[in-house]
Amino acid sequence: MEQKQEYWGWLATGYFFLAAMGAMMAAVVAMLDVLGVTVIDQIYGWVSFAALVITGCGSLLLMVELTHIFRAYLVYARPKSIMCMGSYLLTSFLGLTFVYTTFFIYFVPWSGWVLVRKLVAVLDIVAALGLVVYPGLELAEARGRSFWQGSGLVALFLVSATSTGLAGVLLMLIFFELSGSEYLGVLSTLLTVSLVLQLVLLGSYLWGVRLNGTKEGRQAILNMVKGPYCVNFWGGVVVLGTLIPLGLSILGKMVPFAVGAAALVLIGGLFFRRTFLQAAERISMPGEENQQINDQQTKELAAALESRWMEKARWLKNQCS
């Protein structure tokens, strides 16, 4: 019986995390820009550039995950597939964020075209939101993994991405020594709201799967709350990634609290994706749990037999010669 989802590991986790963080960082500044918030507009270009780099690194992880990296262009071949749609979304987001970033380079001729910049910002927000919600839709395609079939998965991914995006922007605000601006407070408050929402959605998602899910869905939750992934779940997602940053952001809007909260939110975002990817067991085939030896043991046995046969072949050859 498959105990866990073993096909997509840390590389996919890293991609989902970085893409979500980058996309929401870009979406946050693009929204502020469209709304005409000018107090912190000095960092819009930098945040957007950081979002580009972060999402770009995520895409590299995705490429490394492929066994045929030089055929990577084929991921655009079948637009009907959700993976392919994801590739188009990722490419559009990277392209739009790049264009948006160029508006902040002073010597670029179009740097003063405010209306066009805002139009690009709106398109960038749409692409960013698409990029953030599509993992939820993509995982829901796995009909045999009922843990991913809950209706709140997309919302959960969206809220978690919003938290990590806000955390990224907060860190940049502090890095650019704009911690005195009133927007640090505003962003901290938004982060607090997002974390509360995340906690509520996480709880209701798990509760929903527990009540309505199949045996495998319930088992996935047990694995998360009591089983092999409980350290990642309770330690990484709930305590480090949500409760402590929530406490820190409620405690005060001072820089050390804000930095601590933002950094922990990022760690939590990574663990959230890791745990959610790993825990989703596939529906068992009848009798699969009776398999006397698992696939890994079969491989080891096969390798041992193979080497024994080679030994025998060598021995026979020596005898004949």
């Binding site: 498959e2 989802q5 096909y7 997509w8 995950e65 492929l66 066994t67 045929h68 055929r71 990577a72 084929l74 991921v75 071949a77 993976m83 993509e138 395609e141 796995a142 009909r143 045999g144 993994r145 596939r282 529906i283 085939m285 699969e288």
Partner: peptide, 16 residues
Amino acid sequence: KKCVGCRFCLLVCPYG
């Protein structure tokens, strides 16, 4: 010759 090795099919095949 077309498989890029993304493993998505392994993930979504309910029969493993």
